[in-house]
């Protein structure tokens, strides 16, 4: 963990070398989710309701998933950019160092300009929370924190899966966007608006439902939600287990096949 923080500091200092370009990129990074957010608001302006959901409730949903995505894109960027890491021979370097590969790949890249999205989602969350009359209790606060942090881990797991794919092929990686960008766009709305199969897939296979939709129902005291739903995000982190195992398998394959 200590080493990880050192990596963060190092890359942060690197990126601070280009301050103007950094700020501009960050601004632009804020604009992209903002346009999506604006589209959502405009839809609500016309339709008023989405299923049984109010605009403020969906805003909270939006904020949680975008926050998780931004954090993950910022801190797990090494996996997101893994094709580049491999093709530049950096992975060989990682293998000749006496530390775990996961930690080192995480440390290889950080993209702080992605904080633009984070800023936007913080603002959106602030607005949503202030307008919703949630009966806050410690469990609910904990749940919200878990939603964001475990969501970050779920996205990181997907990035990791995509990176693992790089050990076999560099072609067709775009498919992974379905689960990263697609997952984000999908889970920014409450999952119950979709077809049942899709809701199930994004709850049990890739557990966006567990970090967002289900605990959100509890936060908002929706009928049928139970207190233990607040802790479902923890369950979602189990998703990382197969990701890490596959990653290990991929590394072994890299070691036996060469690049």
């Amino acid at each position: 963990m200590n080493l990880y923080l050192r990596y963060v500091k190092m890359v942060f200092r690197c990126q601070m070398q280009y301050r103007v370009s950094f700020l501009l990129t960050m601004l632009a990074q804020m604009l992209i989710p903002f346009s999506v957010f604006a589209g959502m608001l405009l839809l609500f302006q016309r339709f008023h309701l989405l299923g049984s959901w109010q605009v403020d409730e969906v805003m909270l949903c939006f904020a949680v998933i975008h926050m998780a995505f931004a954090l993950s894109e910022c801190f797990a960027r090494g996996f997101d950019m893994f094709a580049q890491v491999v093709s530049q021979g950096e992975f060989d370097r990682i293998l000749v160092r006496p530390r775990g590969t996961v930690l080192q790949v995480l440390g290889a890249r950080f993209e702080f300009s992605r904080m633009g999205r984070l800023c936007l989602s913080v603002v959106v969350m602030g607005i949503a929370v202030s307008r919703l009359s949630i009966a806050w209790n410690p469990l609910k606060v904990l749940s919200l924190v878990l939603m964001v942090s475990c969501g970050t881990l779920v996205f990181a797991g997907i990035f990791m899966l995509a990176a693992t794919l790089c050990f076999w092929t560099l072609q067709g990686l775009e498919v992974v966007n379905i689960f990263t960008d697609g997952g984000r766009e999908m889970a920014q709305y409450p999952l119950d608006i979709y077809k049942k199969e899709i809701t199930r897939f994004f709850t049990f296979v890739i557990p966006f439902g567990m970090v967002n939709y289900l605990p959100l129902r509890y936060l908002l005291d929706r009928p049928g939600s139970m207190a233990w739903h607040a802790l479902l995000p923890l369950c979602a982190t189990l998703f990382l287990v197969p990701c890490v195992l596959l990653w290990r398998f991929g590394v072994r394959r890299y070691q036996s096949a060469g690049s």
Binding site: R46, F47, H48, L50, G51, M186, Y189, I193, Y194, I198
Partner: peptide, 17 residues
Amino acid sequence: FWGFMLIMILEAFYRNS
């Protein structure tokens, strides 16, 4: 995937229209 998702979202909105 994107196409489906967008239509599903809009479909959900249209239900209350």
